[in-house]
């Protein structure tokens, strides 16, 4: 039994892990406090945009970070959720919260179809099929009358939550968006830290071994795919309510690329990574929007620096290895 390495953690390591645990407890509380007072410092629409994309990136990370599946078609679920929500709120006159439920379920149904087809392949082929199917959905949206094509689906007044609370008030809207995003984040957190989530991690680590233990890995992957699609749809629906608009931008392939960038910049397979990544991304995008220099070039440079310097993303690199759920 002469294996000197990899024994139980020695003293300093334990302390390091404990303090990392304290930090991990403190960070969500600080973030929550910041989110509660943020609209008094920042332009609320900007913060709400950030919250929507944070939820979108977290939903995407559920698939990439915890299941090991790289989808390049998540714009279909985000944009689809936006269209479904906007349509039922505008045409059917549903209240905002019901609109979000329709957007979420619609994106889940779309995820079930796209996932069932794309999961028949793996690796780069899976990624390419998700892109192809998302592009088909994009062209459907371009042609279908209910999306109003290039004009987008414009919403009227924001309506009343549960028929009572006026979302036309900026603060009401902000706290509604914050509550929905927190619920979505909680669902993701619960999902990845559940018995089901443990099986997903085992599939991510070694798919063949999971099969040999009797797991139908396709079914588990599809479950994660549908959950990720549903929460992306929720983020999209929320974005449509905030901006009173669902457009082709939301379903275009660039949106699929942006969510990959946000997640990679922040750190895949970490809870906070997608939130930080989307914050950096949205802040850069907003600040650079007025510059003469092309935004995409700066974003590209930022992305390359992140990939070269922070291999595991901003959050992944700042955590000790023991406490960060890392992708192998």
């Amino acid at each position: 039994m002469a294996h000197p390495t990899s024994g139980p953690a020695a003293g300093p390591q334990i302390r390091e892990i404990r303090s990392a645990g304290t930090i991990r407890m403190a960070i969500p509380l600080v973030a929550l406090a910041a989110a509660l007072i943020a609209p008094f410092w920042f332009y609320p629409i900007f913060v709400m945009k950030f919250l929507c994309f944070a939820l979108f990136a977290a939903a995407f990370n559920l698939l990439l970070g915890y299941t090991g599946l790289l989808s390049f078609g998540h714009a279909a679920f985000f944009g689809g959720g936006a269209y479904f929500t906007a349509h039922v709120v505008k045409i059917w006159g549903l209240t905002p919260e019901l609109g979000l439920i329709v957007g979420t379920l619609g994106a889940a149904a779309l995820g079930l179809v796209i996932g069932a087809i794309a999961l028949r392949r793996s690796g780069i082929y899976f990624t390419m099929i998700t892109l192809a199917l998302a592009q088909m959905f994009y062209f459907f949206c371009l042609q279908a009358p209910f999306t109003h094509g290039e004009d987008g689906l414009q919403l009227g007044p924001r309506g009343h939550l549960f028929g009572v609370i006026d979302l036309g008030q900026a603060m009401n809207l902000y706290y509604f968006v914050l509550a929905v995003v927190l619920i979505g984040m909680f669902v993701i957190w619960r999902f990845v830290n559940s018995p089901f989530g443990m099986i997903l991690r085992s599939i991510r680590d070694n798919e063949q071994r999971a099969i040999s233990l009797g797991y139908s890995v396709q079914a588990y992957k599809l479950g994660a795919f549908v959950m990720s699609a549903a929460l992306s749809g929720l983020a999209g629906g929320l974005k449509a309510l905030v901006f009173q608009l669902a457009t082709l931008t939301d379903v275009a392939w660039q949106m699929s690329g942006e969510v990959v960038l946000m997640t990679l910049i922040g750190g895949i397979g970490t809870q906070a990574g997608p939130v930080v990544g989307s914050g950096v991304f949205i802040a850069l995008q907003n600040n650079l929007a007025t510059s003469d220099f092309p935004v995409t070039i700066i974003m590209g440079v930022v992305f390359m620096v992140c990939v070269l310097v922070f291999r595991r993303g901003i959050v992944g690199n700042s955590l000790p290895r023991a406490s960060g759920g890392r992708l192998g």
Binding site: R190, F191, N193, S194, P195, F196, G197, M198, I199, Y215, G223, M227
Partner: peptide, 11 residues
């Protein structure tokens, strides 16, 4: 294995 709504602690 399939409970996605339960905490990891049940394991």
């Amino acid at each position: 294995a399939t409970q996605f709504w339960l905490p990891m602690g049940v394991l």
